[in-house]
Design a protein around this nucleic acid. Structure first.
Lengths: 109, 109
DNA sequence: ATTATTCATCGTATTATTGCAATGAATAAT
DNA sequence: ATTATTCATTGCAATAATACGATGAATAAT
């Protein structure tokens, strides 16, 4: 049955998984793409772009903020969102590190 | 409250989210990393590398296979796993398309 | 034939995610 | 002061993900 080792995952593995999870919903992809497309901060017109209720959009924004991929600047009465550069670069290199691997040497490729 | 538009997400958004979800667990990151590290096919010694029961590892492998990121070749009595090139390249360019964006022009960066 | 090995699948319990209506907080407009 | 706007948060309900023991299927070894 195979021995279950008492090994836990590495910090890196948890972090990549966490970042991936933040991207693991079409609404959050749509939010990110919208923020990337508008080259400046987006002031909460996201609800009109998405087929979701305001509360739901707010939840997705919260998740993206929590992980650090985006940030929201309060600019009453609106809140302006944009990509948060440091974490964005972290994610970029994390995914880059995985996908830059050379897989051509595999016996089955 | 903002008008809820009758818009559904694009195929691309669903696909990226789906691929991200496949990477959204440390065990699956560990599996992928292990397959990348071993330059050839890995014959099911994954259970010994992971702190999880065999059934759980099998589940994670199933998910990765379902999405197409890996493939398993039956080589009785073992099953050999490796990265599945076509989908791997698809994921690589999907994430690349997102992370290659220039965010330096944002008003808040 | 019997037993061992390897891996998948089923059943099930636990926990996490998703979605939205309702409400709250804070400011702007009248 | 009252009302409208903007966005966050709370409180459910429905669904999905996670984990693992138990079992099954298929082959190899004895």
């Amino acid at each position: 049955m195979g021995v279950t080792k008492a090994l836990v995952f590495t910090e890196e593995q948890y972090r990549i998984a966490e970042l991936a999870k933040a991207l693991a919903h079409p609404a959050r992809i749509a939010i990110i793409q919208h923020l990337l497309k508008e080259k400046s901060c987006v002031c909460g017109d996201l609800v009109e772009v998405l087929p979701l209720a305001q509360a739901t959009v707010s939840q997705h924004l919260k998740e993206l903020k929590q992980i650090g991929l985006i940030k929201g600047e309060i600019n009453p009465p609106r809140v302006c969102y944009c990509i948060n550069e440091p974490v964005w670069e972290e994610a970029k290199s994390a995914f880059g590190a995985i996908f830059q691997n050379d897989i051509s040497g595999n016996c089955c490729n």
